[in-house]
């Protein structure tokens, strides 16, 4: 099995308490299922909506206006999969996709 990083992109649209609870419950079930199948290599990390960017040899520090990013990464998880195809298959289950989000699937580079 190889490690793949799933980057969860896209903002959560506002919803009623009932709707938000439904979404939360779906996510919890999905992650739990991955974990029970032994597919989680590193637990998921939710990210704050705050970003600083440090650029170039001058180490220029800029504030990134999070609200202006198009589909920001809101969290990620590292999973185990046989290959890219398998990792994509797993990603299809992500509840964030139902709200038109995106999962970016990236293989972790192995040091030869």
């Amino acid at each position: 099995m190889t490690e793949f990083v799933l980057l969860f992109e896209g903002r959560v649209p506002p919803g009623s308490p009932q709707e938000m609870q439904k979404r939360t419950q779906k996510w919890i079930h999905w992650i739990q299922e991955l974990s029970q199948k032994g597919l989680v290599a590193f637990p998921g990390c939710p990210l704050e909506g705050v970003m600083k960017r440090v650029t170039g040899s001058k180490r220029e520090v800029t504030d990134v206006l999070f609200s202006e990013l198009k589909d920001p990464v809101c969290g990620f998880i590292i999973i185990l999969a046989n290959d890219m195809e398998h990792a994509v298959e797993i990603s299809r289950g992500c509840p964030g996709l139902d709200l038109e989000g995106t999962v970016e699937v990236r293989q972790v580079m192995t040091i030869h």
Binding site: E3, V88, L97, T102, V103, V105, M109
Partner: peptide
């Protein structure tokens, strides 16, 4: 923790689960 990533990847998007090459 830390991980280097392969440069190519896949994007799975939206309700339709459209799969594209990217980023």
């Amino acid at each position: 923790a830390g991980r280097p990533l392969e440069r190519s990847g896949k994007l799975v998007t939206g309700k339709s689960r459209t799969v594209t090459d990217g980023p």
